[in-house]
């Protein structure tokens, strides 16, 4: 505990702490367990040099609503296994999911963003992606879900290695896509130097916009190599990707200014809710009987209005 706090302090007043370090370099720091060893210092320095004054302390709370479908629950668990910087929380009753409770929950867990999987009618999955203290938040409809458990997806990678995030070029097309891209980078990118993260890069996330939906794919990177810091010449061309999963497709519905609420900044003009779609399909199926009855009566009317002429040969064989 004590050690941790010390580290945070050092970050908070970065330059000052650095100066102090420089001044008292001869004398090692005293800690609870004795004298701090010198070997730890260079590492710390390297960190601060790499990112002066900035440290990515993103923490993502991942939860879902109650009565979630098993498939969607598995998807959530897969996402949890992909994000070492996430905290999974208990299911939330979906009646109380409106804003306040979730915000509280995120605050309680010291998180800075939230992924909330909301399942409605055991059928439709909505994904809320929110930056927590002060927004923005996005609501997606999730389509085309394939979980990691599917045997078709044959790849595998280290748990907690930092993913490379690739974005298709059309993320820069419009302002709301730019915003979404930033959110995706912050939420799905594993912070550098995170405790649970591993130092190598062996998988890549692909976010790409097709048909106004964001499609997510996760691939394992397979490169023939011998050294860990150099790719042998020509093996970049030999590099192949194996899909690990999960797969899903996000259809943005709305972007809000606050976290889980606030003013609407964007609204998908093409969005039709799945409820409407189902209603439509039902409507197509209805009216079969009514149509039949209608046709029957029409036929009857027709027959009444133009009766058959009396047959002149009708009595021919009756003698």
């Amino acid at each position: 505990m004590g050690k941790k706090r010390k580290q945070r302090e050092a970050e908070n007043n970065g330059p000052e702490a650095k100066k102090e370090d420089a001044a008292s370099e001869e004398r090692p720091k005293r800690t609870l367990l004795g004298w701090k060893e010198k070997s730890e210092k260079p590492q710390e320095k390297a960190d601060t040099v790499a990112a002066p004054g900035f440290r990515n302390k993103e923490k993502v709370l991942v939860t879902c609503s109650r009565r979630i479908n098993y498939r969607y629950r598995h998807l959530m668990l897969n996402v949890v296994s992909l994000l070492p910087h996430c905290k999974k929380d208990n299911k939330v009753e979906s009646k109380e999911t409106k804003g306040a409770t979730l915000n509280e929950l995120v605050e309680l867990r010291n998180c800075s963003s939230c992924l909330f999987f909301e399942c409605r009618k055991h059928l439709d999955l909505y994904l809320w992606m929110a930056k927590c203290p002060n927004g923005p938040s996005v609501k997606f409809l999730v389509n085309a879900v394939h979980t990691m458990e599917e045997l078709k997806l044959t790849g595998n990678h280290l748990k907690g290695s930092r993913p490379i995030l690739t974005f298709s070029a059309n993320f820069d097309k419009d302002s709301h896509w730019i915003l979404l891209k930033e959110m995706l980078i912050q939420i799905f990118g594993t912070p550098k130097g995170h405790q649970k993260s591993k130092p190598y890069h062996d998988h890549v996330f692909a976010f790409s916009i097709v048909d106004d939906h964001i499609w997510f794919r996760n691939y394992q990177i397979a490169v023939p190599h011998n050294e860990s810091d150099k790719v042998p010449r020509g093996s970049l061309e030999k590099m192949t990707l194996v899909e690990v999963g999960p797969r899903f497709c996000l259809n943005p519905i709305k972007i809000f200014g606050g976290s889980f609420g606030g003013p609407t900044l964007y609204e998908n003009p093409f969005y039709v809710s799945p409820n409407q779609i189902r209603a439509l399909q039902k409507k197509q199926k209805t009216g079969k009987y009514a149509k039949k009855v209608k046709a029957k009566t029409r036929r009857k009317m027709h027959e009444l209005s133009n009766p058959l002429e009396p047959d002149e040969f009708a009595d021919m064989w009756k003698e």
Binding site: F54, N56, T166
Partner: peptide, 21 residues
């Protein structure tokens, strides 16, 4: 909002690991 939430501009690439293709 984007301005509010985004990281400072001078964050090195190694932090983001994001590539536009």
């Amino acid at each position: 909002k984007l301005g509010d939430m985004s990281w400072p501009q001078d964050v090195p690439w190694i932090q983001r690991l994001a590539v536009d293709v």
